[in-house]
């Protein structure tokens, strides 16, 4: 009798635990999965994402879980990511696209991820068909969802990935122009009346980064005037850290100083560098350049 009582108690306890596990809330499961992903525990993360996918009852949870699984193949393996991993990730994204609504806000994201995977397959296999698929998807994103975060992310990725390791090619220039069109199309560069969209607009989210890229791109093509223009834009849209802000202010000043021989512009930005950057080993150098340039102007 006593034995039976103990066994029954154990059974009930065991079943309760299982039930509790089964009804673990999806947000917690996904949160834990992303934590594991962030910590580099990808096998564990994948298991949790798979579990979350099975329990998902809405578009968001399902999409998120599927993304998590796909990321474990597309990114987690880093240099070891194989063609098959990218293909599997594409399959997952297509699965997501089939399930979600046609007007779902996740469509641009999944489209972008498919494009990125196709491009990487092309990079590994040289099969042009994959490149064409990638480009087609990227164009689709820009046409349909141009100012979403996913599309900005995709545009940046596309431009840098397709530019490759050589800034000097005509193709690289074309891609840079594509990036510039983003500013014109979305009126991020001030129009003649000097009005800029508010800083909190999501379409500005990666605009600063784009400007930074363009500044670097034109610099190495020796188009210093354009380079400075985009670096100023980067500064005005907001560098993401103090270190990057210091770098861009100094770079604008020095480029104006040594490449453009534009003394007033150089003085202006060396001064701004002095004012905004309180702790930097280049400060004294900037101060001395201001003195020297002012002397030259006089």
């Amino acid at each position: 009798m006593k034995t039976k009582l103990i066994l029954t108690t154990l059974l009930i306890a065991g079943l309760s635990t299982l039930c509790m596990a089964a009804t673990a809330t999806k947000p917690e499961l996904l949160k834990t999965a992303w934590q594991e992903y962030k910590l580099g525990e990808y096998s564990q993360a994948e298991k949790l994402f798979i579990q979350a996918k099975k329990l998902a009852k809405d578009d968001k949870s399902y999409s998120e879980a599927l993304t998590g699984i796909a990321f474990c193949y597309q990114y987690a393996k880093k240099q070891q990511t194989a063609v098959s991993d990218y293909r599997y990730a594409i399959k997952l994204y297509e699965q997501a696209l089939k399930k979600i609504d046609s007007a779902s806000k996740y469509r641009p994201f999944f489209t972008a991820m498919r494009a990125e995977c196709y491009f990487n397959i092309y990079r590994l296999t040289d099969e042009k068909d994959n490149l064409n698929k990638a480009v087609k998807l990227w164009n689709e994103i820009q046409q349909q969802w141009s100012t979403t975060v996913a599309s900005q992310d995709a545009l940046l990725y596309q431009v840098m990935a397709m530019t490759g390791d050589d800034y000097s090619t005509p193709e690289a220039l074309q891609l840079a122009k594509q990036l510039e069109r983003y500013f014109k199309t979305n009126k991020i560069i001030p129009s003649k009346d000097g009005k800029k969209p508010p800083a909190t607009a999501k379409k500005l989210l990666l605009a600063a980064v784009m400007s930074n890229y363009l500044g670097d791109f034109y610099f190495w093509r020796q188009d210093y005037k354009n380079s400075v223009k985009w670096l100023i834009n980067y500064y005005e849209l907001g560098a993401s850290s103090y270190a990057y802000k210091a770098d861009v202010l100094f770079k604008i000043a020095r480029t104006a100083d040594v490449k453009l021989n534009d003394k007033p512009l150089a003085i202006s930005y060396y001064t701004l560098f002095q004012y905004e950057i309180k702790s930097d080993k280049r400060r004294y150098f900037a101060q001395q350049r201001i003195i020297a340039l002012n002397k030259d102007i006089k």
């Binding site: 975060v149 992310d153 940046l156 840098m160 990935a161 530019t163 390791d165 050589d166 800034y167 000097s168 999501k202 989210l205 990666l206 600063a208 980064v209 930074n212 890229y213 670097d216 791109f217 190495w220 560098a239 993401s240 850290s241 990057y244």
Partner: peptide, 27 residues
């Protein structure tokens, strides 16, 4: 999270264009 994404991209741009800068100078 929006700021973090933008910051990550700043770092990523620097990384993805490092080889470009090397090539531009040595080519």
């Amino acid at each position: 999270s929006l700021n973090k994404l933008a910051s990550t991209w700043d770092v990523l741009v620097t990384a993805m264009t490092a080889i470009n800068r090397i090539n531009a100078q040595i080519k």
